[in-house]
Design a binder for these strands. Structure first.
Lengths: 333, 333
DNA sequence: CTGTTAGCGCTTTCAT
DNA sequence: ATGAAAGCGCTAACAG
């Protein structure tokens, strides 16, 4: 069923049908009614493809992310999808695994499909975006980085101030009397580095020297957290609080400490990051940092759609995280 | 940059370019080389839209799901996306919220875009798919239900045997000596009903009568679990084990019981469902049921792509869940 | 082997 | 206010 069928059926030309379809005016209301009548009883659906053929816009954007199964990305992607859907765009999902090869593959495919824009979710893309294979693919359409930054002509950013975020945790613990604070770092993205820096800076600001030695690198996930906690414990070093760069790491810390008979928060305080469901599921519930993925997503969508529709372009924004108190941190004693 | 530019540049016709582009043969290897050379230095990308215009295939499928933030759906959607990506398809994500209006809106949009097929994830679509507004939209392209069933011409299913799944939990508890077993139900989808039935049937099979009175309905999420657990506790009814239809509900149960000073598993055993990350994060770790979303996803993709490409059509499959023992269930004493 | 040509379904001038 | 006609970029007959 095409526009021709409708035209024939209504006894008008395809131009007229196209006009009523797109509400372009210049159609006698009588003719319009006639066409609409045919339209109504015909279950005709215009082909978005044919439209894209002329208009050059498929009303589609792509979201590239590392892995939609990671709750933080899921929340971001969810909000992006919902917001764009409201605006009449469809969203193509790309799980790149953070890998160069996949990123390139997806980008190529998206450009062939003539997506109207791209949102790259996660700071992995800071680095990936600079890659000579990727770079040229990123200038064909507007690009927004959600929690990332890229110095490319058509790209804009919505950033989360992770330095500040981790600073909140440190400050929180400091106020509770903790001085021997450790930081568990589990990744190597720009975001993870910012968090580490946030830790170092906050410690310095609070007059707690030698914080570099209080940064422990470990693997991602529960395992990494447990392992690092046990190592710290066995090292014999004094500590009363552990700040983690991820909720999942913090969960691991809780498990590790529990296994060693260390009570949280009575003996040691622990904080996470992301304000994920995990933080509310584990015992005790985590004190964590809300880095507001929904807000990041909404701003990213706003930014990208204004870029696509060439309306006023908002400048890149920076979002301030917030501390969410839980049961895993308490006064030092 | 179009095929015409390439043709001119290489001094051949567009057909020839098209031929080498699609590896159709019938091109002198010399000419081919020439064209490929031009192609290589031109960063030309064929327009998938124009292709779709003729070929009627955009190599795109849509995944409709309730909410990608729910880990179980995220796992399913992730696997679907990855598998289709391997096959050269793009995946459009649709978060319908399980709502009729949104479902209709998404379906319409997807059909206008000429998606090659649809995967509906979750048994909510059993009912939604029967809706007179939805039904006609589902016969334009092949449809696969992941963990759902629809009696429609072009639709196929990959089912999880949830009756059997919950049965595993009951059996597990029975073997550990439990007799006073309760079931917490928190949704009203076909899947949730199957689970409830699984409970009733298993109880009957094991010779434990009056199981209907052992089914407690509650709201979804942690809250629902806690609430129901406390209610059961205060009702004064005897019970030594609680089977939940969702891990999250089970987590709530753990929290509720802990709050009331009831120890798990020493005093009461608890089981969840889904084998989600949640089950491993909470304390104690949950005994749960693995309903294999990745497998469901892979079979769904296989099914849908064979429908799209009209190769051999696999019959709809049924997947058997497995019990994953955790620390939340122990011998009755 | 290669080029010419006719669409695919729609939007958009340009006439009328 | 309406219609005719020219593409959009590509694929697929159909001729050579």
């Amino acid at each position: 069923m095409t526009i021709y069928d409708i035209a024939k059926e209504a006894g008008v030309s395809i131009s007229t049908v196209s006009r009523v379809l797109n509400d372009k005016g210049n159609v006698k209301s009588e003719t319009k009614k006639k066409v609409e009548a045919v339209l109504a009883r015909s279950n005709y659906a215009p082909s978005a493809i044919a439209r894209g053929m002329t208009g050059k816009q498929l009303q589609t954007v792509a979201v590239l992310t590392v892995d939609i199964r990671v709750p933080h990305y899921a929340r971001t992607a969810y909000t992006i999808e919902r917001e764009f859907s409201r605006k009449g765009y469809d969203v193509t999902l790309c799980n790149t695994g953070g890998e160069l090869k996949e990123t390139v593959r997806y980008l190529r495919s998206m450009l062939e499909k003539q997506v109207d824009g791209l949102i790259l979710v996660g700071s992995v893309f800071n680095e990936l975006g600079q890659n000579p294979e990727v770079k040229p693919l990123l200038k064909a359409v507007p690009v927004v980085l959600a929690n990332g930054k890229l110095n490319l002509p058509y790209s804009y950013s919505v950033l989360v101030d992770d330095v500040y975020g981790v600073g909140l945790s440190v400050q929180h613990l400091y106020q509770k009397g903790h001085r021997d604070i450790y930081y568990f770092k589990d990744m190597d993205t720009a975001s993870a580095q910012a968090k580490r820096d946030g830790f170092l800076r906050a410690m310095e600001t609070l007059g707690l020297p030698g914080a570099e030695k209080h940064v422990l690198e470990t693997t991602a996930g529960i395992e990494g957290g447990s392992k690092a906690a046990l190592e710290l414990l066995h090292s014999g070093r004094a500590f009363s609080a552990i700040v983690c760069g991820e909720d999942l790491t913090a969960v691991g810390v809780l498990k590790g400490l529990a296994q060693a008979g260390v009570r949280v928060p009575q003996d040691v305080s622990v904080t996470g990051y992301n304000n994920s469901a995990y933080a509310r599921i584990c015992t005790p519930q985590l004190t964590t940092i809300d880095n507001k993925p929904e807000l990041v997503a909404m701003l990213s969508v706003q930014l990208l759609s204004s870029l696509i529709e060439k309306t006023d372009v908002y400048s890149s924004g920076v979002i301030q995280p917030e501390l969410v108190p839980g049961e895993s941190s308490a006064d030092y004693r």
